[in-house]
Computed example of a mutant assay.
Amino acid sequence: MFAHMHGRGGRGCGPRGGGEWSRGPFAVRWDFGRGDPREDGRGGGGRRRMFDGGELRLVLLRMIADEPRHGYELIKAIEELTGGAYAPSPGMVYPALTMLAEMELIAEQPSETARKRFVVTGAGTAHLAEHAEQVAALMARLAEVGAHRARSDRAPIRRAMRNLRTVLQNRLEADDLSEDASHAVAELIDEVVRKIERLK
C-alpha cells in the first residue's frame, strides 16, 4: 500500500539533504526569506520544497483523521496552520485526495452538498499509525512555517522598539535636552502608549 503511495509521489516522502525537500510532481518551494510559496517548484537558490506528493497525502490524511473535510476545507486548514504563509493549490490537493480514495485510506462521506467531504477509513488510521513519526515531522514543518510567519509579522514592531530605545539613549547620554524638551518627549511616549492600548 505504502509503496503505491510512495511511487506516485516522486522520490520519496522524507526530506533530502542540502536544505531542500525531496522533489515530486506536487512539490512546492517555500522561500523563508520572502514568504513566497511557489507551487511550480521554480525559483532561485535558498528555497526548500514544502511537500512532495507522498508527504502532502500524509498531511491530508492526518487532517481528515482529525475531522472529516472536503478539499477546500483542507486548503484553508493548512493555510491557517501556517498563518496564511502557505496554502496548497486545488491542483495539488484534489489529485492527492483522489489517490487516497483509490488506496481506500479515505472514503467519501454522504452529503447533501456538491462538495465531497472525506472521512478516514480503518486502513487510513492504520497507515497513519504505521507512519506516525513521519506524520509528526510533517505537521511540525507546517507549524514551523506558521511560527516563522508570526515572527516576521512582528518584525516591524521590534524594529520600531529598537529605534525608540536607541534615540532615547542617545539623547539622554548627550544630556542636551532642556527641561521643556524632556517633558515633551515624555508626553510623546505617553501619547503613543495610550494609542497602543486602544488598538484592537
Rank of each mutant, 00 (worst) to 15 (best):
L177Y: 13
A3W: 10
D40N: 11
S111A: 15
L128N: 13
A123Y: 07
F2G: 06
M50I: 07
G41R: 02
T166A: 10
L172V: 14
W21M: 07
A129L: 04
R198E: 11
M161S: 10
P15K: 07
V145S: 03
N163E: 12
E79P: 00
H148E: 06
I157L: 15
G124L: 08
L168A: 10
Y86C: 06
L128F: 00
L74G: 06
A140R: 11
G91Q: 09
G33Q: 12
R62S: 04
A150P: 02
S89T: 13
T82H: 01
E55Q: 10
E173V: 08
L142Y: 13
D36H: 05
E191Y: 08
L177D: 04
L177T: 14
T121F: 00
K195W: 00
E112H: 14
G33P: 13
D36S: 09
E104R: 06
G19F: 10
G10P: 15
A155D: 07
D180H: 06
M63R: 12
M161P: 03
G124Q: 14
G41T: 05
E73L: 02
I189T: 14
A3V: 11
F2E: 00
R23K: 14
S89P: 13
A129I: 15
A143P: 02
F51H: 01
D66Q: 09
M63Q: 01
L142R: 10
T121W: 02
H127C: 14
R165Q: 03
H6N: 00
A65H: 03
F26C: 05
R23C: 07
A87F: 15
A150L: 09
M63C: 07
E130I: 13
S89W: 11
W30K: 05
C13T: 12
T82C: 09
H127T: 13
D66P: 15
Y72S: 11
A101I: 15
M63W: 10
D175K: 13
E108N: 10
G83Y: 01
V193P: 04
P88L: 03
N163P: 12
K200F: 00
H6K: 04
L56I: 08
V28E: 01
A150D: 10
H127Q: 15
E55P: 14
R159W: 00
R8Q: 02
M92W: 05
K76M: 10
A114H: 01
D176F: 11
A123V: 12
L81E: 08
R151Q: 01
A85L: 06
M161T: 12
Y94L: 00
G7K: 01
K200L: 04
P88A: 05
F32Y: 09
R42M: 13
G46S: 10
E39C: 15
V192T: 02
A147V: 06
E197A: 04
K200G: 01
G46T: 06
H70D: 03
S22M: 00
E79L: 01
V167I: 07
P95M: 06
